[in-house]
């Protein structure tokens, strides 16, 4: 079953008097539970594609459906709720809330959802923190963690709401190769345990071996292998 359906997706950026065509017409389907890597050189459009799938950026033309919902026509609140309820993010620079500790960072999206009791929130967060191996650091603030540990927190936070999709834009870019490998192993493990669709972008050929499926993008269009 397709969790994501994209048709004729185009994205244009005005740049002075010219227009940059970041995406030139993407058609693709992503099946539920996939572990997909989007690869391509810098400026190829992979981050733009991820941002649009993640409801962070808007499409210039075309259709993007997530779980059957057309996201290009949603308003700000609907888009925000879509991100909260159906999408998890893992950023390149491990963006965590600096004033919250590990467990509070992981709890953050659950608290925004306002669906669960405090006990349920804590139980869910503790489970995810345990799964990413940070139980001993649960009450540490981001500044007290290493880069790899922060990325683990980001993974736990991305998964804590049971999203349909987790998007990771170059999740290993700022990590050394060993730690990067561990993070990708962890993402794969979480994909297996939680049955969540993972889509991550990279331009590092070494991380491709972790992907189940690979999509190549160049100059804003998908390239068939």
């Amino acid at each position: 079953m397709n969790i994501i359906e994209i048709r004729e997706l185009k994205k244009n950026y005005p740049l002075g008097t010219t227009t940059v065509h970041a995406l030139r017409g993407i058609d693709m389907n992503i099946i539920e539970g996939d572990f997909l890597s989007i690869v391509g050189p810098s400026g190829s459009g992979k981050t733009t594609l991820l941002n649009i799938i993640g409801c962070i950026d808007s499409a210039s033309e075309g259709s993007v459906k997530i779980g059957g919902v057309e996201i290009t026509s949603l308003n700000d609140i609907e888009v925000t709720d879509m991100r909260l309820n159906r999408i998890g993010f893992i950023f390149q620079t491990f963006n965590l809330i600096p004033v919250l500790n590990v467990v509070e960072n992981v709890e953050f999206p659950l608290l925004l959802m306002k669906k669960f009791t405090k006990a349920e929130v804590r139980k869910r967060a503790d489970k995810l923190i345990d799964e990413v191996g940070l139980t001993d650091h649960a009450h540490h603030r981001p500044a007290e963690l290493s880069g790899g540990q922060r990325q683990r927190v980001a993974i736990a936070r991305a998964l804590v709401t049971n999203p349909d999709i987790v998007l990771a834009d170059e999740p290993t870019a700022n990590l050394d190769s060993v730690t990067g490998g561990q993070i990708l192993e962890l993402m794969k493990e979480m994909n297996r345990i939680e049955k969540t669709t993972f889509i991550f972008s990279t331009h590092d050929e070494n991380v491709l071996r972790y992907a189940r499926d690979i999509l190549k993008i160049r100059d804003g269009v998908l390239v068939k292998e």
Partner: peptide
Amino acid sequence: MMRAVGARK
């Protein structure tokens, strides 16, 4: 980042 993970305005 807060907005990205679902915080409304």
